[in-house]
Write a protein that binds this DNA or RNA. Structure first.
Lengths: 214, 214
DNA sequence: CTATGTGAACAGCTTCACAGCG
DNA sequence: CGCTGTGAAGCTGTTCACATAG
């Protein structure tokens, strides 16, 4: 496909932030928003906002601004979150259990439909917001992925297990990985991987704090 | 301070990834590594690795490569993770509890020393890897931050509460924020904020999956 | 008068290519 | 000869400034 191959990566990343802000504005009942207002909320210039949105067509009206609700629909369509994405999660430790119970995913168009773990001691446990998920053994991964046509896999296992889990997921038919393990994954270049190493976020913060005047 | 004001932002972000990879190499007993090897692990060019590291001095040896252990020390010093950073966490929900128990933070130089929540029902609960933390009421935040000289605050509350929690943290003396809430924070420009919205990671993945051939 | 869309100028980051060290 | 460090070139992304629409 590559519908938006010419769009800068940073623009795509900001799109998620615009969407989050727009949803807040919608909840407040706002009907339009200007590039200046959106920019202030995200700490980017108004010109940046206009350039970003202009990649996808003439979305605003001069003198008026951008219509909030139609723009939300447009951005969701671009990001692909105008539909529900089922996902599988591997790792039922502390982080995995928190992710399985996190309501924020469903609100944004993602649903964890199954959780797996290699530890027999946790297989069979109830998980999720209200215990609606049961931890399954790894052996059932391929069957669940195939029968549910699931493309997204979430890795929430300790670092040493991450590479092996990634390979098992790809073998099972998963196409893209969200990796919470603090380890790089060696996967074929065409497999999208987003890394969400929690400690790396903190390191970046530590750097910025160290740069401040004492 | 601004010791490294001239260093590109992307370089600083990659520094964390180099460090993670180097720690893996150290565990394997490797003594040196070339820019080519490091680059392959992170999917960047060897020239990029050399440029990144050269911002901080002559860290490698021609014909040999970079010495793993000294380079780790150097990068930790740059990022500021050569010491232990105490941090406070607000929000003892699913995510907050998982973060409080996450061992990965301590391994990378961060320690959650106190957890706060505004809900009286959870105040007093035991938390952490082994129940060593007790959830405190918000009223104790300023005293704990001041007496512990704590600079980093972690926000793990629902979106509507995030802005208010951020303000309470800054009032209490916190200097930098790691924000897990799916909401932007309106804080003074000099306050470093790193956002770790879990759903945004998934949106970025959804976009990449939608770009793949079906 | 307000606010978009956009070519042109600018800034920042990455890659190239090679001198020079071990 | 392998591999770093680094100017120069090339490319990508951001900001400017203004014509144009409401």
């Amino acid at each position: 496909m590559a519908r938006y191959a010419h769009v800068p990566g940073p623009t795509i990343r900001r799109l998620s932030l615009y969407l989050r802000e727009l949803e807040g504005l919608l909840a407040e009942g706002r009907e339009t928003v200007s590039s200046k207002q959106l920019g202030q909320a995200l700490r980017v210039t108004d010109a940046q906002v206009r350039k970003d949105l202009a990649y996808f067509g003439q979305l605003g009206r001069p003198g008026v601004g951008y219509p909030v609700d139609p723009l939300i629909r447009e951005v969701r369509g671009i990001l692909g979150t105008d539909r529900l994405w089922p996902a599988v999660l591997v790792g039922a430790g502390n982080l995995g259990r928190a992710l399985a119970a996190y309501r924020g995913f469903a609100r944004r168009g993602f649903e964890i439909v199954a959780v797996f773990d290699s530890d027999p001691a946790v297989v069979g446990q109830g998980l999720g917001t209200a215990g609606e998920l049961t931890v399954l053994p790894m052996s059932q991964l391929p069957q669940v992925v195939r029968s549910g046509d699931i493309r997204i896999g979430i890795i929430a296992v300790p670092a040493p297990a991450a590479q092996s889990v990634a390979e098992q997921m790809l073998d099972a038919g998963i196409r893209a990985l969200l990796n919470f393990a603090p380890a790089g994954l060696d996967v074929p270049p065409r497999v999208p991987v987003v890394s969400a190493d929690l400690a790396i976020h903190l390191e970046q913060l530590a750097f910025q704090v160290a740069e401040l005047a004492p």
